[in-house]
Simulated scan of single mutants.
Amino acid sequence: MIIDLPSTTTSQVNSKLVQLREEGGAVTLGRVLTLVIVTDDGSKTEDAVDAANDASREHPCRVIVVARGARRAAPRLDAQIRVGGDAGASEVIVLRLYGELANEGASCVVPLLLPDTPVVAWWPNEAPAVPAQDPIGQLAQRRITDSAAEKNPIKALDQRKAGYTPGDTDLAWTRLTLWRAMLASAFDLPPYEKVTEAEVSGEADSPSTDLLAAWLAGSLRAPVKRSKAVRGEGIVDVRLERKSGVVELVRPDGKVGTLTQPGQPERRVALQRREIRDCLAEELRRLDPDEVYELALKSLGKVVRGRTPAKATAAARKPAPTTSAPSAAGSPNGSAPATAPAKPAGDGASGDGAAAKAPAKSPGRAAKAPAKVAKAAKAKSAKGAVKVAGKGSSTRAKA
Rank of each mutant, 00 (worst) to 15 (best):
S299V: 08
S299L: 08
S299W: 06
S299C: 07
S299A: 15
S299Y: 05
L300D: 04
L300E: 04
L300I: 13
L300N: 04
L300Q: 13
G301E: 12
K302R: 15
K302G: 06
K302P: 01
K302S: 14
K302I: 01
K302Q: 13
V303A: 09
V304A: 12
V304C: 05
V304Q: 14
V304F: 14
V304S: 12
R305E: 08
R305W: 00
G306R: 08
G306K: 04
G306V: 02
G306A: 07
G306C: 03
G306I: 05
G306W: 04
G306D: 02
R307S: 15
R307D: 15
R307M: 04
R307I: 02
R307V: 08
T308V: 15
T308H: 02
T308Y: 01
P309D: 11
P309I: 06
A310T: 08
A310R: 04
A310F: 05
A310H: 07
A310N: 05
K311L: 15
K311S: 14
K311H: 06
K311T: 15
A312D: 14
A312C: 00
T313H: 14
T313M: 13
T313V: 10
T313P: 00
A314S: 12
A314E: 14
A314T: 11
A314W: 03
A314H: 06
A315P: 01
A315M: 13
A315Q: 13
A315T: 03
A316P: 00
R317D: 08
R317W: 06
R317T: 11
R317S: 11
R317C: 00
R317V: 10
R317E: 13
K318M: 10
K318G: 04
K318T: 10
K318W: 03
P319R: 10
P319I: 05
P319C: 04
P319T: 07
A320F: 05
A320P: 00
A320I: 09
P321N: 05
P321I: 05
P321L: 07
P321Q: 05
T322D: 07
T322P: 00
T322M: 05
T323L: 13
T323E: 09
S324D: 05
S324I: 06
S324F: 09
A325W: 05
A325G: 02
P326W: 04
P326E: 07
P326F: 01
P326Q: 09
P326T: 10
S327F: 01
S327C: 01
S327H: 03
S327I: 02
S327G: 08
S327T: 15
A329E: 13
A329L: 09
A329W: 03
A329N: 06
A329K: 14
A329V: 10
A329P: 00
A329C: 00
A329S: 10
A329G: 04
G330Y: 04
G330I: 07
G330K: 13
G330T: 15
S331F: 03
S331H: 12
P332C: 00
P332S: 10
P332K: 09
P332Y: 06
P332I: 11
